[in-house]
Design a binder for these strands. Sequence first.
RNA 1: CGACUCCGAUGACUCGUC
Length: 374
Amino acid sequence: VRLLNLLIDMYAKCSSIESAVAVFQSIERPSRHSWNCLLVAYIRCRCLAEAKATFDHGMPQRCVISWNAMLSAYATAGRVGSAGELFGKMPATSIASWNAMLSGSVHNGYCFDRARAAFFDRAPERNTVGCSILVAAYAARGDLRSARCVFDRMPEWDIVSSTAMVQAYAGAGRLEQATKEFQAMPQRNLVSWNALVAVHAHHGDTAAARAAFHRMPCHDVLSWSTLVLACARGGGGDARLVFDAMPQRDVVSWTGMMQALAEAEAMDEARAAFCRMPQHSTVAANVAMQSYVRRGELGDAVRLFQAMPERSPVTWNAMVSGYGQAGLMDQARATFDATPSRDTVSWNALATAYYQCGRLGMVEATFSRMPSRG
RNA sequence: CGACUCCGAUGACUCGUC
């Protein structure tokens, strides 16, 4: 039975829900553990409805782990309200429950301080997981001071918390501190190494990115793709060499390669890369569109925009600012009005477009119409 | 008495800020 439980878990990690369910059904007397494995399998494979059915009336008994699994399912789906409701009904909680709530609420735009107070400060206990969630969240918000404050108070550190701290330093532009923290880490793994390469890539330091890449003991697609991006950004023209040397490529590497070509003004090759990509993605189309905008070829950008099967919020925002840069304020405004879900970037883009078109009065008007902050 | 199942860190695109 234990082996079969393990099998369910393995299939779930491969998103092969049918196989996972089949293994579960082959167990004649499933244990509580088996039921949890099945529940987690549904969650991992994004079958929320089945997970809920299993949780509500499938499993003979539920333990904290089952509750936590459902909590995190809702939280990662962005349904913090449902998660909170469930949290309130729990007969007993564990640290993982509090951490799941913390993670869900800091990632889904609720008031950060309230989330922290409710699920971290007021939690019965805290561990490295909860602290890492906070450090990472502060890093993402660019709040180095608060990240450090949490990090420095931790009783002990692990790879995850240290990697988050490396990101926090790098995000604040403190490259020396970031590398120092990296060297001070208790251990390193693939993720922390990848993070370091990404830090250098983001900073435009191709040489450092490459050096880190060659020092790491092993690589995955993500490491390689990050290096391609570093080359694309640094403009060294070596992106192609890296790309060709990759053992396997994914959407990101293809997109990075295309971007490198576009930035090197090799538009024909960039176009060819776009067409040869095995999978198309909205991001790749956005990158292509943006290349046109940067070259002042707005007609091509618009054509691409109209032809895109899917548009993300980024697509809409990029189009608004593309029109703005071209001085086509009416089109910028029309695109903004047509944007399905406006975010802070949309509003800033609109204000900037007005500014670029010399309509200073409208800049002010836009700011006063903005829903909130930014 | 342990082990297994639940929570945290890594890559691409848009405005502004540094």
